[in-house]
Amino acid sequence: MIPYGRQTIEADDEAAVLETLRSDFLTQGPRTGAFERALADRVGARHCLVLSSATAALHVVYAAMELEGREGITTPNTFVATANAMAYAGMKPRFADIDPATFNLDPDAVEAALTDDTALIAPVHFAGLPADMARFAALAKARGLKLVEDASHAIGSEYPDGGRVGDCRYSDATVFSFHPVKTMTTGEGGAITTNDDALYERMALLRSHGIERAPERMAGNPGPWFYEQQHLGFNYRMTEMQAALGATQLAKLDRFANRRREIIAAYHAGLSDLNWLNLPVQPSQTVCHHLFVLQIDFEAIGQSRAEVMARLKAAGVGTQVHYIPVHLQPWYRQQYGTAPGDFPNAERYYDRTLSIPLYPAMTDADVAQVIAAVRALGA
């Protein structure tokens, strides 16, 4: 079975984790800081924090911005965590529709959805393709809004102007995910980059219980054991083992990204002539795709999505659906009154979507097998 996504773990990754297990620190040690510095340097940001998950990272960003009681706008075409973290931070999550070509949050739809209570825009770089950050940055600046990039899919991608996703040239902060199906992994894990010194300090406190350990800055310098809880924070730290794995994975990011692009080129060459299937747009800039998402006219081939997934599984090809629109989830419908029909572009996308395998360890034979299995659906 060729899964839709999986991690690539090699000998140097294993050695780094084993070395850490034999070291003096399993948490809060030197490897975490080293990974943070390497990631900040890689994307060109001033600061980086690594955390236990991207969900934790989103929560910390939103909480540090102190937007309780306000509204945040994001896309319905995302994993629930993007919006859930707003609710964790005491905000009201709201949605705007997607661009039907890129499947990213539509700036025009966001502008139409703004209210006096809107304080935050959180675009998602779906499948690795950056959203229109220049438009969102202009909108945020004009309205005095915070701007957070959910780049969980987009480590290794670039903006059209050549900047690296994560350099925060457009936003207050950027969040990455290192889940095993992403381009690089730490097992579970996430990161935040920012160029805002004050925001970084608040996020660093919230990551670890809201506790400050700096007796030299405190009255009387009580001693090296002393700490103070300044905020109601969380235990969202990344372990040293995760950070060690992240560092070795980051060193291979370009290789992983290049292989993903080779696979995507093969998919475009092998599937673009099928009139019952649409392929993702091919961007002009360098993009590291996390997903390869097909839009299939299931009615045209006389099969439901479930039947297609079963046929592909029988042919040894794993698939997945990314995503059920968040506004259709029962909790959102009950809590905020969202309903089918609210965001027709996102719902139309969902009705036709199917993700096929994409990960660096795929062989050329694997890619050919996927192409043959997809083509056979219309035979």
Rank of each mutant, 00 (worst) to 15 (best):
L114F: 13
L139P: 06
A87D: 07
P100R: 05
A134Y: 01
N104M: 06
P93D: 01
P93H: 02
M133S: 11
E111V: 12
D106N: 14
D117R: 15
A113E: 15
R135F: 02
D132P: 00
V124T: 14
L145D: 04
V148C: 05
H125M: 01
A122K: 06
E149M: 11
F126N: 12
E149S: 15
A112G: 15
A127Y: 09
V110Q: 12
F126M: 12
P93L: 04
A96C: 10
A112D: 14
D106Q: 08
P93C: 07
R94E: 15
A112T: 10
R94G: 13
R135T: 06
D99M: 00
A151T: 09
K146T: 00
N104W: 03
F95D: 03
V124K: 12
M133Q: 11
A151P: 08
L114M: 13
L145H: 09
L120M: 04
L145V: 12
A119Q: 06
H125W: 00
A109L: 11
R135K: 14
L105R: 09
D117L: 12
I98P: 01
D116F: 02
A113P: 11
N104D: 14
D132N: 15
T102A: 09
D97Y: 09
D106L: 04
F103D: 14
D117V: 04
D132M: 03
H153I: 00
R94M: 13
R135Y: 00
D117I: 01
A109H: 10
A96T: 04
D99F: 00
P130M: 00
P130E: 03
D116P: 10
P107C: 07
D108E: 15
P130I: 06
K141V: 04
K146S: 04
L147V: 04
A151G: 08
L105S: 09
A131R: 03
K146W: 06
I98G: 10
G144M: 02
P93Q: 05
S152V: 02
G90S: 05
A113H: 10
D97H: 09
A137W: 02
N104T: 15
V110W: 12
A140N: 01
A89K: 06
I121V: 14
A112K: 14
L120I: 03
P93G: 05
D116Y: 08
A137H: 11
P107N: 06
D116V: 11
L120K: 10
D116A: 15
